Amino acid sequence: MYTQKIHPGANFPDIKATLSSGEQVLLNTTRDGCDWKVVVVYRGKHCPICTKYLNQLESFKQQFLDEGVDLIAVSGDSKSQLDAHLEELNISFPVAYGLTQQDMQTLGLFISEPRSEQETDHNFAEPALFVINSENKVQIAEIANAPFIRPDIELLLNGLKFIRDPDNNYPIRGQLSY
Protein backbone atom coordinates (compact mmCIF):
# COMPACT_ATOMS: atom_id res chain seq x y z
CA MET A 1 0.00 0.00 0.00
CA TYR A 2 1.24 3.47 -0.85
CA THR A 3 0.51 6.66 1.03
CA GLN A 4 0.43 10.18 -0.36
CA LYS A 5 2.75 12.35 1.71
CA ILE A 6 2.37 16.06 2.31
CA HIS A 7 5.40 17.66 0.68
CA PRO A 8 7.70 20.44 1.88
CA GLY A 9 6.52 23.74 0.46
CA ALA A 10 2.90 22.58 0.14
CA ASN A 11 0.12 24.41 1.92
CA PHE A 12 -0.74 22.78 5.22
CA PRO A 13 -4.37 21.63 4.96
CA ASP A 14 -7.15 23.12 7.08
CA ILE A 15 -7.59 20.26 9.54
CA LYS A 16 -9.72 20.74 12.63
CA ALA A 17 -9.37 19.01 15.97
CA THR A 18 -10.92 19.62 19.37
CA LEU A 19 -9.33 20.75 22.63
CA SER A 20 -10.48 19.16 25.90
CA SER A 21 -12.47 22.37 26.54
CA GLY A 22 -14.59 21.50 23.50
CA GLU A 23 -13.15 24.34 21.40
CA GLN A 24 -12.48 23.36 17.80
CA VAL A 25 -9.18 24.60 16.40
CA LEU A 26 -7.50 24.60 13.03
CA LEU A 27 -4.13 22.94 13.45
CA ASN A 28 -2.42 25.57 11.28
CA THR A 29 -3.75 28.63 13.15
CA THR A 30 -1.19 30.41 15.33
CA ARG A 31 -1.79 32.28 18.58
CA ASP A 32 0.08 34.36 21.15
CA GLY A 33 1.66 36.62 18.52
CA CYS A 34 3.39 33.70 16.77
CA ASP A 35 3.63 33.46 13.01
CA TRP A 36 4.93 29.86 12.70
CA LYS A 37 3.51 26.65 14.13
CA VAL A 38 4.78 23.21 15.15
CA VAL A 39 2.13 20.50 14.90
CA VAL A 40 3.08 17.33 16.76
CA VAL A 41 1.02 14.27 15.87
CA TYR A 42 1.26 11.66 18.60
CA ARG A 43 -0.07 8.12 18.76
CA GLY A 44 -2.36 8.59 21.76
CA LYS A 45 -2.73 8.02 25.46
CA HIS A 46 -1.67 4.39 25.11
CA CYS A 47 1.87 5.36 24.08
CA PRO A 48 4.33 6.01 26.95
CA ILE A 49 6.94 7.26 24.47
CA CYS A 50 4.46 9.92 23.31
CA THR A 51 3.82 10.97 26.91
CA LYS A 52 7.54 11.34 27.50
CA TYR A 53 8.04 13.31 24.27
CA LEU A 54 5.18 15.71 24.98
CA ASN A 55 6.50 16.32 28.50
CA GLN A 56 9.97 17.03 27.04
CA LEU A 57 8.43 19.43 24.55
CA GLU A 58 6.93 21.40 27.43
CA SER A 59 10.39 22.21 28.76
CA PHE A 60 11.15 23.99 25.44
CA LYS A 61 7.74 25.63 25.03
CA GLN A 62 8.81 29.13 26.07
CA GLN A 63 11.84 29.04 23.79
CA PHE A 64 9.59 28.17 20.85
CA LEU A 65 7.20 30.99 21.76
CA ASP A 66 10.12 33.42 22.15
CA GLU A 67 11.13 32.46 18.61
CA GLY A 68 7.59 33.17 17.32
CA VAL A 69 6.69 29.49 16.95
CA ASP A 70 3.43 28.20 18.42
CA LEU A 71 2.89 24.56 19.46
CA ILE A 72 0.00 22.11 19.35
CA ALA A 73 -0.16 18.33 19.74
CA VAL A 74 -2.94 16.19 18.29
CA SER A 75 -4.00 12.56 18.16
CA GLY A 76 -6.90 10.42 17.03
CA ASP A 77 -7.92 9.80 20.64
CA SER A 78 -11.40 10.49 21.96
CA LYS A 79 -12.20 13.23 24.47
CA SER A 80 -12.21 10.76 27.36
CA GLN A 81 -8.83 9.36 26.29
CA LEU A 82 -7.37 12.88 26.04
CA ASP A 83 -8.81 13.89 29.42
CA ALA A 84 -7.25 10.79 31.03
CA HIS A 85 -3.95 11.49 29.24
CA LEU A 86 -3.88 15.10 30.42
CA GLU A 87 -3.71 13.75 33.98
CA GLU A 88 -0.39 12.08 33.05
CA LEU A 89 1.00 15.06 31.15
CA ASN A 90 2.69 18.09 32.68
CA ILE A 91 2.15 20.45 29.77
CA SER A 92 0.58 23.84 29.16
CA PHE A 93 0.51 23.97 25.35
CA PRO A 94 -2.70 22.93 23.57
CA VAL A 95 -3.40 19.25 22.99
CA ALA A 96 -6.27 18.24 20.74
CA TYR A 97 -8.15 15.06 19.99
CA GLY A 98 -10.30 13.73 17.19
CA LEU A 99 -7.88 13.49 14.29
CA THR A 100 -9.83 11.31 11.87
CA GLN A 101 -8.41 8.59 9.68
CA GLN A 102 -9.19 10.81 6.67
CA ASP A 103 -7.17 13.63 8.32
CA MET A 104 -4.32 11.21 8.89
CA GLN A 105 -4.41 10.17 5.24
CA THR A 106 -4.53 13.81 4.10
CA LEU A 107 -1.33 14.46 6.05
CA GLY A 108 0.28 11.31 4.66
CA LEU A 109 0.72 9.75 8.09
CA PHE A 110 1.40 6.11 8.70
CA ILE A 111 -1.64 4.56 10.38
CA SER A 112 -1.64 1.50 12.62
CA GLU A 113 -4.24 -0.85 14.01
CA PRO A 114 -4.22 -1.48 17.75
CA ARG A 115 -2.57 -4.72 18.82
CA SER A 116 -5.30 -5.31 21.40
CA GLU A 117 -8.25 -3.62 23.08
CA GLN A 118 -5.93 -2.83 25.99
CA GLU A 119 -3.79 -0.68 23.69
CA THR A 120 -6.63 1.45 22.27
CA ASP A 121 -9.98 1.10 20.56
CA HIS A 122 -9.23 2.78 17.21
CA ASN A 123 -6.71 2.99 14.40
CA PHE A 124 -4.10 5.64 15.21
CA ALA A 125 -1.45 7.74 13.53
CA GLU A 126 2.19 7.02 14.07
CA PRO A 127 4.25 10.05 15.16
CA ALA A 128 4.78 13.03 12.90
CA LEU A 129 5.89 16.61 13.26
CA PHE A 130 5.19 19.49 10.90
CA VAL A 131 6.61 22.99 10.99
CA ILE A 132 4.33 25.45 9.24
CA ASN A 133 5.77 28.82 8.24
CA SER A 134 4.05 32.22 8.14
CA GLU A 135 2.78 31.54 4.60
CA ASN A 136 1.04 28.30 5.75
CA LYS A 137 3.67 26.28 3.88
CA VAL A 138 5.16 23.08 5.25
CA GLN A 139 8.69 24.15 6.15
CA ILE A 140 9.64 20.82 7.78
CA ALA A 141 7.91 17.43 7.75
CA GLU A 142 8.97 14.44 9.82
CA ILE A 143 6.73 11.40 9.36
CA ALA A 144 7.58 8.18 11.20
CA ASN A 145 6.13 4.68 11.06
CA ALA A 146 7.10 3.68 14.60
CA PRO A 147 7.03 5.37 18.01
CA PHE A 148 10.82 5.25 18.42
CA ILE A 149 11.61 7.94 15.84
CA ARG A 150 11.18 11.53 17.03
CA PRO A 151 12.94 14.78 16.16
CA ASP A 152 15.40 15.96 18.79
CA ILE A 153 13.60 18.98 20.26
CA GLU A 154 16.69 21.06 21.02
CA LEU A 155 18.10 20.41 17.55
CA LEU A 156 14.75 21.36 16.00
CA LEU A 157 14.58 24.58 18.02
CA ASN A 158 18.12 25.57 17.05
CA GLY A 159 17.36 24.77 13.43
CA LEU A 160 14.26 26.96 13.52
CA LYS A 161 16.29 29.82 14.96
CA PHE A 162 18.68 29.46 12.04
CA ILE A 163 15.92 29.16 9.42
CA ARG A 164 13.96 32.13 10.78
CA ASP A 165 17.00 34.42 10.77
CA PRO A 166 16.52 36.49 7.58
CA ASP A 167 20.29 36.87 7.19
CA ASN A 168 20.54 33.13 6.50
CA ASN A 169 18.02 33.17 3.62
CA TYR A 170 17.36 29.46 4.25
CA PRO A 171 14.87 27.90 1.79
CA ILE A 172 12.40 25.10 2.29
CA ARG A 173 14.45 21.95 1.73
CA GLY A 174 13.41 18.73 -0.05
CA GLN A 175 11.19 20.22 -2.71
CA LEU A 176 12.78 18.26 -5.58
CA SER A 177 11.50 14.93 -4.27
CA TYR A 178 8.20 15.13 -6.12
Rank of each mutant, 00 (worst) to 15 (best):
M1N: 12
Y2K: 13
K5H: 12
H7W: 04
N11L: 04
D14Q: 14
I15F: 02
K16N: 06
L19F: 00
S20C: 00
S21W: 00
S21V: 03
S21G: 10
Q24V: 11
Q24T: 14
Q24H: 08
Q24D: 11
V25Q: 11
V25A: 04
L27D: 02
N28D: 11
N28W: 03
T30L: 08
T30S: 11
D32R: 15
G33A: 06
G33V: 03
G33K: 02
C34D: 13
D35Q: 12
V38C: 07
V39R: 01
V39K: 04
V39N: 03
V41I: 14
V41W: 06
Y42E: 01
H46A: 07
C47L: 05
C50P: 03
C50D: 06
K52I: 05
N55P: 04
Q56I: 05
F60E: 05
F60S: 04
Q63F: 04
F64R: 13
L65F: 13
L65Y: 10
D66Y: 09
G68T: 09
L71G: 05
I72L: 11
V74I: 04
S75C: 08
D77C: 10
K79Y: 09
K79D: 08
Q81R: 13
L82K: 09
H85P: 02
E88A: 15
E88V: 13
E88I: 10
L89V: 09
L89Q: 11
N90A: 14
F93P: 12
A96C: 12
Y97K: 02
Y97W: 15
G98N: 05
T100Q: 05
T100I: 06
Q101E: 15
Q102Y: 07
Q102A: 15
D103L: 01
M104N: 00
T106H: 00
L107W: 05
F110P: 05
F110I: 04
F110V: 00
I111E: 08
I111C: 09
S112D: 10
S112F: 05
E113Q: 13
P114G: 01
P114W: 01
E117I: 10
E117H: 13
E119G: 01
T120V: 03
T120H: 03
D121P: 02
H122R: 02
H122E: 01
F124T: 02
P127F: 10
L129V: 13
F130A: 03
V131I: 14
V131E: 02
I132R: 04
S134G: 07
S134C: 10
E135P: 04
E135K: 15
K137W: 01
K137D: 02
K137T: 00
V138S: 02
I140W: 04
I140S: 09
A141Y: 10
E142L: 14
E142P: 00
I143G: 05
A146H: 14
A146E: 12
F148M: 11
I153M: 10
I153L: 12
L155D: 11
L155H: 12
L156A: 03
K161S: 11
I163H: 06
I163W: 02
I163E: 07
I163Q: 09
R164A: 09
D165G: 15
D165S: 15
D167Q: 15
N168C: 10
I172M: 01
I172Q: 09
I172Y: 06
I172S: 04
R173P: 02
G174M: 08
G174E: 10
Q175G: 06
L176Q: 14
